[in-house]
Amino acid sequence: MRRIILSPFLWIGIIILAAIATWPMATNNPTLREELFLILMFITMALSLNIILGYTGYVNFGHIVFFGLGGYLGIYVMSTLHWGLFPAMIVGGIGASVFAFLLGAAILRLRGAYFALATIGINETMLALAGNFQPFGGATGLTLNFRIYKLYGGAGKALWLAFALLAAVTIIAFIASFIIEKSKFGLGLMVIREDEDAAMVMGIPTPLFKNLAYTASAFLPGIIGVLYFFKNGNIEPGEAFNLEMSIEVLVMIMLGGFGTVSGPIIGAALYEEIRSSLIVNPLLQSMHLVIAGLLLLAIILFVPIGVVGWIRQRVPAVRRYLE
């Protein structure tokens, strides 16, 4: 525990994230807030996915399922049962985790590519199910009544609130990732990633560990799903269970380097920056997907350990600051 609390990396990280969060508030800049909302959201998605992907070595293409399910549960209790935002966030997070725990008990028996395929199947099943599930509004989804924002001082204030809450969640994601990485549990996950059969013989209860990792990875996406769709005002299946977005989060982790805490953060921020700068440039706009694809291919072929992995390898001195 001492090692965690005294780590310079932890404190520098918290300070940077907190600074990023207060920056649009201090300058009262809604455009910047919207940009940073996406970046913080992707950082949390990438950090949480990294628990099952980076530490445990299970390739999950369906991470967005937890975001979508949490969003649906949260918007449902807000719009139909008239609950407030905070209980809705709890419902979203716990709902996503319970779902992950039950699902994990079934699909975490699969290994390698079979697991990856199953997660694609789960994503598409949820997408198709949501479109047919009438309590969730079927294909049209659910819309929040505008009145709900009044509870939080009007729509303008509600957006700031959503941002502040997201920033808090992101900092929690960061601290939790760091604690997991430095814990016995995290070491167990990494052993599973390296060699699951050896892990079992070494005394690691692999089914339990894998499922705990999967369940933990689902919790924060469930919460930010509620925040995102609260800010949006409505939720519909295509946006909640968007397979492309799952894969984008994977790409972010690859870009930064998986199995570290700073990798997903730097990867998510870089990816969002690159994408938004490509989209605003009229010349590059139509080619932004091509450029992103070429970039991804180049990273995979030439720097497969990601930006952070590469820096850590080149400059060992910075390792304490780049865990």
């Binding site: 992907l53 070595g57 390739v59 390698g112 590519a113 990856a116 894969i247 994977l250 790409v251 690859m254 998986f258 139509s286 080619m287 932004h288 997907l289 091509v290 450029i291 992103a292 694809g293 070429l294 991804l296 291919l297 995979i300 072929l301 497969p304």
Partner: peptide, 25 residues
């Protein structure tokens, strides 16, 4: 990347997909 872990080939083929679909769009 044939000998690399699954994730690598999954992503390299996904990158090819992005390039094709981006160019196509």
């Amino acid at each position: 990347v044939l000998e690399a872990p699954e994730l690598t080939t999954l992503l390299s083929t996904f990158a090819v997909s992005m390039i094709i679909i981006g160019g196509g769009t």
